[in-house]
């Protein structure tokens, strides 16, 4: 009987998972979320930027990681705009520029910030790390002179102000990345050689690979997955979709752990019989 635990119909697991996640969204129970040191140090680094300084946001993800990375961008923008920090964004992923426009608009409206004055969306430029490295020399040339929507960079106050991706113009870098090209390109070609401090906001699956760079101090912090976004929302006092999704994620994960235990108990029982 117990050995049947290792062959539970997968559809039963799916149904239970759907129910648990849906119920947790409909009736949140408010499981506590403790802020971790990596998110805290990233928040502190952004918080320490003086008003008027420039935060560079790398938009290296697309819609496939929407659940984790849309809340990350929203909360960072909220934090930066509240602190009157100017934001410049650049995308090595084709959809990054569009996503920035989509998410920046409501936050900019909330804080009465203007496109081209308080934030600038350089948008997607092809070439990956080569285009990124070219930004270090001259943003205008590397971006073919125009922003995400074809507007000349030189026609905007922020485009005139931020000429290079260098320490003289940019105070801090946050790369929101879901893969390659992404965070390691910023680390290799910009942050390390140009000595610009940076942090990263990555999908959950990338967290183990990026953690050594936090421990070595090469990243000033790390926002990892939905959990990291929820922690940042708590710190920034800007609750959003990440915090509201944490109950579902935690209970969903607990259910999967439970079925892994069931499977192992079933396996051990069947081995004992043999």
């Amino acid at each position: 009987m117990i050995e049947r635990l290792q062959s539970i119909d997968r559809r039963i697991i799916y149904v239970l998972l759907i129910l648990v996640i849906a119920l947790a969204l409909l009736k949140p129970i408010g499981l506590p979320v403790k802020v971790g040191p990596m998110t805290k140090s990233m928040y502190d680094a952004v918080d320490a930027l003086p008003a008027g300084s420039v935060l560079w946001i790398g938009m290296d993800f697309n819609q496939s990681s929407k659940a984790e990375q849309y809340p990350m961008l929203s909360v960072i923008l909220d934090h930066a705009f509240r602190k009157n920090v100017k934001v410049v964004s650049f995308a090595m992923w084709p959809n990054g520029g569009q996503i920035f426009d989509q998410l920046a608009a409501p936050v900019a409206k909330k804080y009465n910030k203007q496109d081209g004055v308080d934030y600038l969306n350089i948008g997607y430029k092809p070439g990956g790390s080569v285009a990124l490295r070219a930004m270090v020399t001259d943003i205008n040339t590397a971006a073919a002179g125009v922003d995400q929507n074809g507007k000349p960079l030189a026609s905007t106050p922020l485009g005139q102000q931020v000429k290079k991706l260098s320490k003289d113009y940019v105070g801090f870098i946050v790369d929101i990345a879901a893969g390659d090209p992404g965070t390691t390109d910023y680390l290799n070609y910009v942050s390390t050689p140009e000595k610009i401090p940076m942090a990263t906001a990555v999908v959950n699956v990338s967290v183990p690979g990026e953690m050594p760079y936090v421990q070595s101090g090469q990243y000033k912090g790390l926002m990892g997955g939905l959990r990291g976004a929820a922690e940042y929302e708590i710190l920034a006092r800007a609750p959003g979709k990440a915090a509201s999704g944490m109950d579902s994620q935690s209970l969903g994960a607990a259910l999967i752990v439970l079925f892994i235990i069931f499977g192992n108990v079933g396996y051990l029982a069947s081995r004992g019989k043999k």
Partner: peptide, 18 residues
């Protein structure tokens, strides 16, 4: 790494349910 991948997939599903 496997645990992080599972958690990532759950988050994607949470996003779709949202």
């Amino acid at each position: 790494a496997f645990g992080s991948t599972v958690l990532y997939r759950i988050t994607l599903f949470v996003g779709r349910m949202q």
